[in-house]
Computed example of a mutant assay.
Amino acid sequence: MKESPTARRRALGQALRELRIAAGKNTAEAAALLECSESKIRKIEYGDVPTKVAERNALMAAYGATEEDTAEIHSLAKGANQRGWWQSYRGAVPRWFQRFVGLESAAAEIRTYEVELVPGLLQTESYAHALINSGNPGMPQSEIESRLKVRTERQERLLKDGARLVVVMSEAAIRRVVGGPSVMSEQLTLLLDIQQQAEVEIQVIPYAAGAHPATGFPFVLLRFPDDVAPSLAYTESLTSAAYHDRQADVDTYTLTFDRLRAIALSPADSAALMRQAAEELQT
C-alpha cells in the first residue's frame, strides 16, 4: 500500500463498515456503542477522522469480528493516524480538499476529465500562479507560494510513484490563454513533453465533437491497488467536494470516461492539436 494516511483511514473505515453491515447493525447502534454521534461513525467509515484503539476494539467486539478480521483492522490502522505530507503546508490546502490529496497520493491510476483548464497535476508553475491570482485577488504572496509548493509536490509524487495518469480535456482547456501567450505556450510545451512518458496519456476532445455525456461536468476517477480501497469518483465546486464511491456511481463515471476517450482525438492527434495551438500563440 502506498504510504497515505488518508487512504489507510479509508480502507480501515471500509473494513469497519463491512463488519457493521455483516453484523446487521446500523449507524445509530454503532454510535451508541461509542457514545458518539452517527455523524462520527459515518466519518470513521469514510476515513475522514482517525480512530482510537479503544474505539476500534469496541466496534470489533460488537460486530463479532473474527481473529482474521481483527488482524486486518489492526494492520490497516498502522499509519492511519499519521499526518499527511500536505498538512505541513498550513492553510495552503483547504480542509475539503485535503482528503482528495491524500487519496490521490495512494492511487494506482488517476483518470481525469477537464472542461476549461489544464488539470492541476499537469500545470506549470506560471500557469498555476496565474490561476491562483485570478481566482484570489489580494491573496498574500506567502500563501500563493505555499499553494504552488503543494501543487509541485503533488506532481513530483505522481511521477515518482509511477501512478498511471489518463487525461481527457476539452479543446477549451488548451485554447483558453491563461496568464498570457508566453505562459500558455510554456504550458502547452509541458503537455507535449510529459505525454512522452509511458504512464501519462493525454487526449483532447475537439470543438467539432459537439455535445457529449460529460459536457460541462469535470470529474476525477481514482483507482487504488487491490489492497487499498475500492475506486471512487471525485467532483468539486468552489467551496466543497463530493466523493462518489457507490459502485453504481463509479460504474457510471467509468462508462462516461470511456465514452469521452472514444470521441476524443487519439494521443497523437491530440498532440498535433496542442502543437498547433502553441504555434498560433506565436503569431
Rank of each mutant, 00 (worst) to 15 (best):
T112P: 00
S39Y: 09
L103F: 02
A208S: 15
A277C: 05
R95E: 15
H74M: 12
L222K: 01
Y253N: 12
E125M: 11
E3M: 04
R261Q: 14
D226C: 10
T189R: 09
W85G: 07
L188A: 02
S266C: 08
T235D: 08
A80T: 14
E201F: 03
L232K: 08
E171D: 10
A211H: 06
L19M: 11
H129I: 01
G84R: 03
E67Q: 14
D227C: 12
E143I: 10
M184S: 09
P225N: 11
P119V: 04
D227W: 12
F257E: 08
E171F: 03
H244S: 10
E35F: 10
A172Y: 06
V118N: 05
E186N: 11
L148Q: 10
R90F: 07
A32S: 14
S182R: 13
A198K: 15
Y113R: 08
A58C: 09
Q197Y: 13
I73Y: 02
S237H: 14
Q87Y: 02
S4R: 03
D227A: 15
W86H: 00
A277Y: 00
P230C: 04
A11T: 00
A209V: 10
L19A: 10
K25C: 02
L121S: 06
Q276S: 12
G180A: 10
W86E: 01
A209D: 11
E279C: 05
L232M: 14
L238Q: 13
A268Y: 06
L188G: 02
V178S: 06
T239I: 13
K2P: 13
R154G: 03
L232Q: 07
M60D: 03
R157F: 01
V166A: 07
L265A: 04
L16F: 02
